[in-house]
Design a protein around this nucleic acid. Structure first.
Lengths: 142, 142
DNA sequence: CCATCCTGCTAGCAATAGTTAGCACTTTGC
DNA sequence: GCAAAGTGCTAACTATTGCTAGCAGGATGG
């Protein structure tokens, strides 16, 4: 009985973090250095004993090449459609690799997708969108 | 000894935060309550005296209906194309309002835009040796 | 005129984030 | 066999977060 519920969310974050780290073939010390924190501390974060500050979390996310927001979502701290509604818009608008025109086009497509799904799920309020299931039976012709 | 250098980034975050708060016509206490923090603490954050933890920052961002990532970017803590490269991908993949197929389409378009701009600005293909990057998107035929 | 509610701010304290030093174990090579 | 360097973890400490209690000033209105 090791996991004693330290808010449970922190543990989830730690697990996901460790999963990402090992998947990137990074040792604890390597990631710690890249993220600019000490290795014992990173170890404690992974085991759910500590909650990293915003800055540290950003550094870690950056070192792992993932979004801090995603880190939160995947760790179950933030629900996907909770406060992040519009994160696609923001991500696109904040992208420096796109021209303004391209951003607009992309967002147009995005909006149209959402509108389609909206109209789709409206009569049938069963909106369980399981990844891998790809419920595209009603999806528009692309 | 007055701490002159509070990293300066914190001040920027505070300024942006305050700007957003007043723009939303929220008093300090109102936002503090919505974000689940004490009002003196929020006050200190806005004045750059404190750096909020990851959780608190998320709560504040949520209460203001903005992305924590954007909060960082706008505050100048995180540069837009810095570690957030790929945030569009992540935002799209994390979006619950899209089907898997739509996500794929959107990302295809996104990738093609990037490829276009890449070819435009860099005649000589720059190869960045980033571990675990696995650049799979090489301009899909649209 | 004074009570009451708002605004934001300061002081002081408890909790915890993040540090350095160092332990135990495993692998690598001489 | 054993040094050297890798892995992650523990302990003790300092620095910082985030709290409660309470202050001064401005509106509102009885």
């Amino acid at each position: 009985m090791v996991k004693v519920k330290v808010t449970e969310t922190v543990g989830a974050l730690g697990d996901y973090l460790k999963e990402q780290r090992t998947q990137s073939r990074l040792s604890l010390r390597q990631l710690a250095e890249q993220a600019g924190v000490s290795n014992p501390y990173l170890s404690q974060i992974e085991r759910g004993l500590r909650k990293p500050s915003a800055e540290v979390l950003q550094q870690i996310a950056k070192a792992l090449r993932i979004s801090a927001e995603q880190l939160y979502i995947r760790a179950g701290i933030l629900s996907p459609d909770d406060g992040v509604g519009g994160s696609v818009e923001l991500a696109v608008l904040g992208d420096t690799g796109l021209t303004e025109r391209q951003k607009q086009s992309l967002l147009d497509v995005y909006a149209s997708f959402l509108a389609l799904n909206e109209a789709d799920t409206a009569p049938a309020p069963v909106d369980r969108d399981e990844p891998g299931h790809t419920d595209v039976a009603t999806a528009p012709s692309l």
